[in-house]
Nucleic acid binder design. Structure first.
Lengths: 209, 209
DNA sequence: GTCTATACAGAGATAGAC
DNA sequence: GTCTATCTCTGTATAGAC
């Protein structure tokens, strides 16, 4: 999105907003036009049809922070940070659920997940697989360095990722009803503390002596 | 649903199927009628309108296994089973994602979660809160009995619940594309093993002596 | 690039015969 | 209780003037 004040960009934003709120199918071109302040027919000067808007939304998901938990850094550079890295990732999830732009994208993704095969492919490969794979490399390296106990790195990656995703979903859901998200928000940090405490190498008690 | 072969029940099933597949809004009365083998207009002899079918689906969610993880048993009767109880619950989640009826309900729930406020209330109170509350009582009792280490029972409940939900979502999503669910399916048991291992009271090593 | 007007298809719902 | 026919509304999309 280059010109954030161009009409095309306004249409895109309005559409994304509405898709996330009520779903692609339930959103009408008239509504989109209304929110932009133009006639419905004028949209067709910028997008071939309704589906073309949807396509652009899905395409833009890829460059979103929603997806790039590791911000293009490699596990090798990161794993030495230990618990701080996990805290950072956990915080990314939290920020995503509170940032207006990314939470809309997340809500859109969950809305349309079962309606759009292309989106499912994207979710699977870019959101789930890519991040879990990177996470499992991180854990593998941590094991080698004897920072954490040896187990299945892929399992650890899933076990770390899953609650973050779930809590994110909780927050976005609660926000949809304007309910308080305070309790849910604390779970991001608690999860990381709990998780790290359980996987880190315990000092062989002093009592061993 | 009393008469599984009555027309009303056929309509209900066809509608639920379609709602779960393509969403409520995208499902047409004509499609429902076609799948039942009657004219679209005949549906109105059994349901006031399209929304009435939706209402009935949401109502029936309450009695589904999807929700009643504890099968109406109380934490007090159950907690002594220890790890076996967690295995049982984990297995419930797994079964739900593979049973044709419940996986449709789950998919429907995820489809419409952000479109239907009543469904969100239901999800929050009956699916999430109720089960997490029961789980946290279970963990609390386990702590009292010194089966597991003392921490925040509510955190434990969330940490146990969240991955099960996530893996369930993974399976239902993979099934939507006819992809293999084998790898994801193993995570239910691995999660429980991992989780129990981390929370159970460790034998104070022989080495203490 | 936006407007008005309009075409066209598909949706939910009702009426009345059988 | 189901059918055919039809009404009405809403939605996407196009044409053509400005």
């Amino acid at each position: 999105m280059k010109k954030p004040n161009g009409t095309k960009e306004k249409i895109y934003s309005a559409a994304l907003q509405l898709f996330a709120q009520k779903g692609y199918k339930a959103t009408t071109m008239r509504e989109i036009g209304k929110q932009v302040g133009i006639q419905q027919s004028a949209i067709y000067n910028h997008f071939k049809n309704k589906e073309a808007i949807l396509d652009e939304v899905i395409e833009n998901l890829a460059s979103s922070h929603l997806i790039n938990l590791f911000e293009n850094k490699e596990p090798k550079e990161l794993y030495k940070k230990g618990k701080a890295l996990l805290k950072h990732i956990s915080n990314m999830f939290k920020l995503i659920s509170y940032n207006t732009e990314t939470d809309t994208l997340f809500r859109f993704m969950m809305q349309e997940l079962f309606n759009n095969e292309r989106l499912r492919v994207f979710y699977n490969e870019e959101f789930y697989q890519k991040n879990v794979k990177k996470l499992s490399i991180v854990f593998f390296l941590m094991m080698q360095d004897e920072m954490i106990e040896a187990t299945d790195p892929l399992l650890l990656a899933n076990e770390f990722f899953a609650p973050l995703f779930f809590y994110q979903l909780q927050i976005v859901r609660l926000k949809a009803d304007n309910k308080s998200t305070a309790a849910a928000a604390t779970l991001f940090e608690k999860h990381t503390d709990f998780f790290w405490d359980k996987i880190k190498i315990k000092e062989k008690n002093n009592s061993l002596f």
